[in-house]
Design a protein around this nucleic acid. Structure first.
Lengths: 240, 240
DNA sequence: CTGTGGGCTAAGCGCTTGCTCAGTGGTGAG
DNA sequence: CTCACCACTGAGCAAGCGCTTAGCCCACAG
């Protein structure tokens, strides 16, 4: 549903907005509500209690980090007793894995769809622009989920990490391919394709770190800005 | 006992190296050795025991995160009993604050020196290139420290965070100023200066997340690559 | 009505956490 | 030598952790 208040702020690198940051309370919650992140995005998770726990975990992990979040914290955010968590998830780590796996899958699907948009007729520049716009918007709009997805990897078990790492490699491959297509078509001038792909992904991912709903840019604005910057990075110096 | 083997691994967005990720061993270690990160960089911290604890904490926080690191872990890496930590630091959080504060101060000093290099005669493009090269190299070479500096902010107390946030704002201001100078001189074509500054900083900072010593690029190579990409982002489309 | 099944809770187990404190051992002044 | 000094240790405390268990409640089948 989009429309949220979006924008940014962060303090990230020094951020943008006033100095709005601090662990926030946020989530107005509720059906008609505003915040677009976890609420409706996980509507397909059933049963209801499992979804509430998942959403609560996303918010807690994003705010405090996995290790600083207790199972009691998650359960109480979901309005349940601590023991209820273990009816739906075997361990706290499995909760994180679910969030991470599904989050990565959705981000990858989004990227593939944007990169392949109008497969036959879209130019590499259009495809790269669409890809960046989509990926940035995802990291901004869903920055609560994205923070868990991008910054809590180290807390996964070895096997779970390996599974997620595969999705991450696929993600990078999509970006690399679009840039390679542009180079092959003569539309891009890029000496180091893997390096450029790395930079593009890095730029998009880092949005999750600094983006703040109270800031001055909407997810759409950041997406447009970044798509422009990325296209400048890869275009030949003298446009032709 | 100097350098413990430290460090970790990337996979960031898909990282760099082959697929080298997973908690890695690497660090050549030793006094004459290779790893440049914490060892000699904190040589001015005294007494000796306080420095060993600080270096141990940097490595542990970078590998596992602040909350997943125990005081016993830090102490044993430093070759001491858990109680010894409290002779030199009041709390575990104060240890983090020392690392974060000094790390931010050094990064800022580095940036200011690079941005002001040859103050009078260097062009904005040269200054921006030098700035990016220096900042990226710092995040790559000192990526263990940089990871703590950039990704453990949330674990600071409110007052300590506020102090560090001031340093971060100053950091952003340096980048913004160089870009503004370039725009004023007609050397850069940037519609949104704060937005471009944000992107530049974001790109540099994220290096700490994905950089891996076992990867295929040296800090210098990444610095050169990124300086080139950033200059393309801000240069007028038809170079003049 | 009785009986069954499963989502859920109160209580709590075993363990680890950050941190403390009485005491030890080595060093340097007198 | 004695003695104060202090970095440091061994032992351990209170609190909080992830997770388990026994049993409650209530919808639903018969």
């Amino acid at each position: 549903m989009g429309a949220g208040a979006g924008a940014e702020a962060g303090t990230g690198a020094g951020a943008d907005g006033p100095e709005a940051d601090a662990p926030g309370e946020q989530a107005p919650e509720g059906d008609g509500g505003g915040l677009p992140d976890p609420g409706d995005a996980w509507a397909d998770v059933t049963p209801d209690a499992a979804r509430r726990l998942l959403v609560a975990a996303i918010e807690a992990f994003a705010e405090r980090g996995y290790h600083a979040t207790t199972t009691r914290d998650i359960a109480s955010r979901a309005g349940m007793s601590p023991a209820a968590l273990y009816i739906h998830y075997r361990t706290k780590e499995e909760l994180l894995f679910q969030i991470s796996k599904v989050g990565h899958q959705r981000a990858l699907a989004l990227l593939e769809s944007a990169a392949g948009a109008g497969a036959g007729d879209a130019s590499p520049a259009e495809r790269l622009g669409a890809l960046v716009r989509a990926f940035v918007r995802w990291h901004a709009e869903r920055h609560t989920t994205a923070r868990v997805v991008q910054y809590e990897l180290h807390a996964l078990s070895e096997e779970h990490y390996a599974e997620v790492a595969g999705l991450r490699r696929a993600t990078e491959q999509v970006v690399r391919q679009v840039i390679e297509d542009g180079v092959a078509a003569g539309d891009f001038d890029v000496a180091d394709v893997p390096g450029a792909a790395l930079a593009v992904l890095s730029l998009c991912i880092d949005v999750a770190r600094w983006f703040n709903v109270g800031g001055r840019r909407t997810p759409e604005e950041v997406g447009d800005l970044y798509a422009d910057l990325v296209l400048r990075m890869v275009r030949p110096e003298r446009a032709g």
